[in-house]
Design a protein around this nucleic acid. Sequence first.
DNA 1: CAGTGGTCTAGACCACCAG
DNA 2: TGGTGGTCTAGACCACTGA
Lengths: 246, 246
Amino acid sequence: MSTLHIEVSPGSPVPIYHQISEQLQSAIERGALTKGDFLPSEIELAARWGVSRPTARRAIQELVDRGMLVRKRGVGTQVVNAQLRRAMRLSSLHGDLMRAGRKPSTIVRTFAQQPADQQVAEALEIAEGTPVHYLERLRLANGEPLALMRNWLITPLLANTAPEDFHATGLYEVLAGRRIRPRLAQQVISAKAASLDEAAVLNLPQGAPLLAMWRVMQDDTGRLVEVGDHVYDAGRYSVEMIVMDG
Amino acid sequence: MSTLHIEVSPGSPVPIYHQISEQLQSAIERGALTKGDFLPSEIELAARWGVSRPTARRAIQELVDRGMLVRKRGVGTQVVNAQLRRAMRLSSLHGDLMRAGRKPSTIVRTFAQQPADQQVAEALEIAEGTPVHYLERLRLANGEPLALMRNWLITPLLANTAPEDFHATGLYEVLAGRRIRPRLAQQVISAKAASLDEAAVLNLPQGAPLLAMWRVMQDDTGRLVEVGDHVYDAGRYSVEMIVMDG
DNA sequence: CAGTGGTCTAGACCACCAG
DNA sequence: TGGTGGTCTAGACCACTGA
């Protein structure tokens, strides 16, 4: 239990509850606490960590939210998952492939301004015909085509951007450089058969199953910023996520 | 602004912060506050609602978590979505179809105990060969086949259950009657072409695109309870969700 | 500079669960 | 009956924003 020792830096810009939850998480991940183990009570933990009970509770809550801990009134707090099962995030395919070590590369097929069609205009809540940036990319992993990605972005966003800017990095990384912070997205995931064009581009037989994703993204100011319509080679890509109740 | 009036019942078993957030949500949904409007400051809201600031904050936080409000330090709290875009939940297809008015019905194809194969055993973290319940159902919407659902459940769960119990209701409703409360699930969503068998059952041509979902569910005690392997007619079903950042 | 949300404290009372 | 987590209060100080 002494391995549960936690260091807090009161002067740090990172909140105390978060410092604690990060260290608690690594303690669990490295096996200092394993599935089924109970944590000491909140009162005791607060005393041990030198913080108030609400702060200790908030640190614990972060791990409860991520599915590592379960609280039961009158009983205690218990470890239910030794390692973190990561929730789905607003992440870019490029970053995901990088982390998986699959060597992403990108071919920019189109990058231009054009008037928004009815569907895009509706999603972005702008008038039909308003100029938007249209970006069409082919994403490859280890040199093989994996996804055809079409995006529409509201127009002030990508000023002074060249197609080359998308070669070594993902769209969301480019947006981050423009101080655009994604906050939430509405997604629809479906499946479809590859059209003739899609099949040709992705190097698949016509009619091959594709995983399709339609997305509308909102930034941290509440602005509707981007629409994405992506199709993935179903044999080589799937979507993983954690779904929580309550 | 007087339409923002909120009633609190201190003696109620439902927490004050939740009473407030529910009423605040309906106020926004009925248009008393619309996109772009600012809420009064937390201090003022706390006074107006007759609660402490942490309680007021927690009520507001619930709507921030659901993507209806955005907070900015030094600025204020702003409405960014008039209506709630509902996050993906641990819900049953049966319930979803009911709400959408699509008249679900179910054909139970198999309901039996059998030894867990390697894949199921691994997912449920039990020994291979351990007896589990196997449930195979065909779900129809408005009389047309929509999904083929195969589930494996740890064995003490469905004692004294008959196949008929699944006709008028979903698996999760049956589990709820057994006091099993789902808490989190890990899901993988992919696409595939319909096999000969799948095509026959779903009344589709062979090779038709299917949306496939693999799921491992954990209940509120941390027990791994259920594995699901479902395929859906891609032309008639898709998965919708909200993804949040941070 | 005044006002906002972000964090934190030190208490309190309660519902719930196990022995 | 004693200990647990769930809720709530009334303060406090801070970082950040915009005028």
